[in-house]
Simulated scan of single mutants.
Amino acid sequence: MSVDIAALVRTRVEQPGQVAEAAAARRRPVGLTGVTGRLMLVAADHSARGALRAGEDPMAIADRRRLLERLEIALSRPGVDGVLGTPDVLEDLLLMGVLEDKVVVGSMNRGGLVGTAFEIDDRFTAYDPAAVERMGWQGGKMLLRIDPDDPATAPTLEACGRAVGALAERGLMAMVEPFIAHRVDGRVRNDLSTEAVVRSATVAAGLGWTSAHTWLKLPVIEDMEPVIAATTLPVLLLGGEVAADQEAQFATWAKVLGHPQVRGMVVGRSLLYPPDGDVAGAVDTLVGMM
Rank of each mutant, 00 (worst) to 15 (best):
G17S: 05
A204T: 09
V267W: 06
F118K: 14
A74H: 05
A131H: 01
D92I: 03
G268Q: 07
Y273H: 13
S2K: 12
M40D: 01
M175L: 15
V287S: 13
L233V: 10
W253L: 15
A196S: 14
P58W: 08
A280H: 03
A163R: 12
S47W: 03
R189M: 12
T33I: 02
T156Y: 04
Q261S: 08
T252V: 07
T86A: 13
F124T: 07
G34I: 00
L144V: 15
P16T: 11
L68S: 07
R53W: 01
R38A: 02
A204H: 03
G281Y: 04
W209V: 11
L167Y: 06
A254N: 12
L172P: 05
D278Y: 02
L68K: 00
G171V: 08
W253E: 10
E119R: 13
A44Q: 05
F118W: 11
V103P: 02
Q15G: 01
L8D: 10
E119K: 12
E225A: 14
T232W: 00
A248N: 10
P16K: 14
L90K: 07
S200K: 09
R49P: 07
I73T: 14
E72S: 14
E177K: 13
V13K: 13
D185K: 14
L237E: 01
R170C: 07
D122F: 03
M290K: 01
G208A: 10
G31Y: 04
R77P: 00
W215N: 03
L271H: 01
A130Y: 00
M40I: 11
D149K: 14
H259L: 02
P275Q: 12
E177T: 07
G115K: 10
V242D: 06
H182P: 07
A20C: 04
E241F: 03
P274M: 03
D81P: 02
L71A: 09
L8C: 08
E72Y: 02
E72N: 09
Q249A: 12
A230C: 05
R263K: 15
A117N: 06
D122I: 09
G171E: 08
P275A: 14
W215R: 13
S270Q: 14
A154Y: 03
K255P: 00
